[in-house]
């Protein structure tokens, strides 16, 4: 079941169309990567989920009902540009945001301690936010988004500018949250990381959804692609005349082939064996970056 449903979102800013009938959903227990080139409308979409931008049309629904202030209290949000008071102490700030989401004082304090320890910034609890490094500020921001145990987590570029340790720490938390049944939607331009972390993705361009689906489906969708290495034929001559097979690339003896939907891979294997000793015969998955480039046409 799609717990968070974005249905026909449209928003114009003067002559600029930020969202154009955008529709997609985030199921519970999934990490969904929200992708798109700069200016595609990702941030506007996320702001719309929290009522931070007015919509010309469309609605955001949570388990079938329109999202209002009460629902948003159960959501967690991490904006792209860090949203923290620079002069406030780290723990005070996280606890304050927890209380604004409806927690009582004791629960907010306990959850603050827990998340600061979990994200390895507990030793900076009494520091001002502005004195922290970029990575630690990002961890504090994530703690602020998680402190009230939200059912939906919406994160705008949470991995930007992080070192590998920070990426691992935050990525681990996102997967863990989805594992406990939360909806996790996050945007990123780091497509390899998205591929590793997400079950599915939604790619938008010019405010419209252009591709969506599970990462596995997208990786195996489209024409099948084979990488074959045959000893004695480094240029792939054996494959050039095969019907339904096109030679995409030859690189250091590796021949990359694209098969049409009617071609049997066994036929290809037989042809390769006939040409020589086959040392490699692998079906290639499409990288998410390829899917992305195809989708946005750039």
């Amino acid at each position: 079941m799609a717990d968070l449903q974005l249905d026909g979102l449209s928003r114009r800013f003067g002559a600029v169309t930020a969202l154009d009938d955008l529709t997609f959903s985030v199921p519970s227990g999934h990490v969904v990567g929200f992708l798109g080139p700069n200016g595609a409308g990702k941030t506007t979409t996320m702001r719309a989920i929290f009522g931070l931008t007015d919509l010309d049309a469309g609605s955001v629904r949570w388990r079938g009902s329109p999202v209002g202030p009460a629902e948003r209290r159960r959501f967690g949000y991490m904006p792209e540009e860090r949203g923290l008071y620079p002069n406030m102490l780290v723990a005070d700030q996280v606890e304050y945001l927890g209380r604004l989401h409806g927690m009582d004082g004791a629960s907010a304090a306990a959850a603050t301690r827990q998340w600061l320890e979990r994200l390895e910034v507990a030793d900076r609890a009494d520091s001002k936010v502005e004195s922290l490094s970029h990575g630690n500020q990002q961890r504090v921001q994530l703690a602020a988004a998680l402190v009230h145990d939200p059912e939906v987590l919406v994160l705008d570029e949470p991995l930007a500018g992080l070192d590998p340790t920070g990426v691992d720490a935050i990525g681990e938390v996102l997967v863990e949250q989805a594992g406990t049944g939360r909806c996790v939607l996050f945007s990123s331009h780091q497509l390899d990381l998205v591929e590793d972390l997400c079950e599915s993705v939604a790619i938008i361009d010019h405010g419209r959804l252009v591709v969506s689906g599970s990462v596995d489906e997208l990786a195996t969708s489209g024409p099948r692609r084979l990488t074959v290495r045959v000893e004695g034929d480094r240029l792939g001559t054996w494959a050039r005349a095969l019907p339904g097979v096109s030679l995409a690339e030859v690189d250091g003896g590796e021949v990359r082939l694209v098969l049409d939907e009617f071609t049997d891979s066994d036929t290809v294997l037989d042809a390769a064996r006939a040409a020589g000793h086959v040392t490699q015969f692998v079906f290639e998955r499409r990288r998410l970056s390829e899917v992305f480039r195809e989708a946005v046409g750039r």
Binding site: R47, F50, G51, L52, P69, Y77, G83, L100, H101
Partner: peptide
Amino acid sequence: VVEVLLAT
């Protein structure tokens, strides 16, 4: 920070 605050 106003974005985070106004989200709730």
